[in-house]
Design a protein around this nucleic acid. Structure first.
Lengths: 210, 210
DNA sequence: CCCGAGACTAGGCAGTGTCTAGAAAGTAGT
DNA sequence: ACTACTTTCTAGACACTGCCTAGTCTCGGG
């Protein structure tokens, strides 16, 4: 039998993948470099070649988390947009916009429910600035949100000058609702309803304030 | 010299106080039962009499955090209310209400900036339900928020039937803005401004939606 | 072909949380 | 004041962790 090669060949990816599973199933405290190494069938020092320390692993996880969340939100928003297109010209642009935002927010909440520990990690307080790759991935997510909100200007929901603040506000609200749900303060379906309320309020308030 | 008594006399309180300081200055990872014991001048097993395990210490910290945050918000709201009273009858009730909400939200954000790691702990994802005392303390905070929002009904800002949802939404937004700030996504003063926008939008939206 | 760089092994260190047995101090009840 | 009981704390041990170091293997480019 061809005994295991010296080089794992793909350790970094294997570690990250397994780490995500552990995070999901047993939480951050249960995440140990040594255990990951054992499960990957390498010695306890091997991960060091890919991550200088445990923090680097966590940073990489956070980065991947942001990228995945961004992707899921993009797809959810995309699906909502094509549904709107399918409804053809009968629909009202502002209504479609609200639906798209809700789809995006919903995707965020869904991610939070599926990966609560990961989300915690992504938004955990760092004593110092988060490392550049994490920052970039988080920025990408914010960029996506920004893009979605830009569409509201075209739909006439609010002036372009408000987009920046409204985007931040939406992000904060979605983030807050998710925190409420993942910390077991309110059930998931109530969180979903809250998102609807929040978006409705955001849009009607923005229109009224204009 | 009266050599240290066998009984510390007040170990539990000493541990909690010191733990809060460590959390504030060096973060959750730096929080070690053994180190706390050393600093308190007791053996490494002593804390076990007061906290069955590390998790219990963290739960106690979270509980105290909720109680303190609740207290600070109460006081801030109280000060805002008495300022409103001092302005006498010249003021508009809705305006006063907005100011009170902003004062409360501001206190929350201030707490988040001063105690980011503690806030993380309070809202950290638990695999299982948070223990009863923590739940109760969190409920107390939510009760305070609810009370503040109730005042809006009297001021005619929104119907009583909306208070529940609006309270949750405000809580989520404030929590989300704080998360944005403590995770270094936006600076503190921008967070402050966001709170103002959020409250204004909440109130104008609630009025428009009525 | 070799040789340098990166991936990995293996051992050791300090530190941790948790568990145990038992000593010391406080608290009653008589 | 003596005794029994409970709580608080000590002291030692165990398994585990992250991190460090020295050395070994493997691969790819000169």
């Amino acid at each position: 039998m061809p005994h295991r090669p010296f080089h794992h060949g793909n350790l970094r990816a294997a570690l990250l993948e397994r780490a995500e599973a552990v995070l999901r199933e047993r939480g951050l405290d249960a995440l140990s470099l040594r255990e990951l190494a054992r499960e990957a069938g390498v010695s306890h020092g091997a991960p060091r070649s890919h991550f200088p320390d445990r923090g680097a692993l966590l940073d990489a996880l956070a980065e991947r988390g942001f990228l995945r969340l961004d992707e899921e939100i993009r797809q959810a928003a995309g699906r909502a947009a094509s549904r709107a297109a399918a409804r053809a010209a009968t629909g009202d642009a502002q209504d479609d916009h609200a639906r798209t935002l809700h789809a995006a927010a919903s995707a965020y909440l869904g991610f939070a429910v599926r990966e609560p520990a990961l989300l915690d990690l992504m938004f955990a307080t760092k004593t110092d600035e988060p490392p550049e790759p994490v920052r970039a991935a988080a920025g990408r997510l914010f960029g996506t949100m920004s893009g979605l909100m830009d569409a509201g200007v075209a739909a006439g929901a609010y002036p372009a000058s408000d987009v920046g603040r409204l985007t931040l506000l939406l992000s904060a609200t979605v983030q807050g609702v998710s925190a409420l749900v993942t910390s077991r303060r309110i059930p998931a379906d109530q969180g979903e309803a809250l998102l609807g309320d929040g978006i409705a309020l955001l849009l009607s308030g923005a229109a009224a304030g204009r």
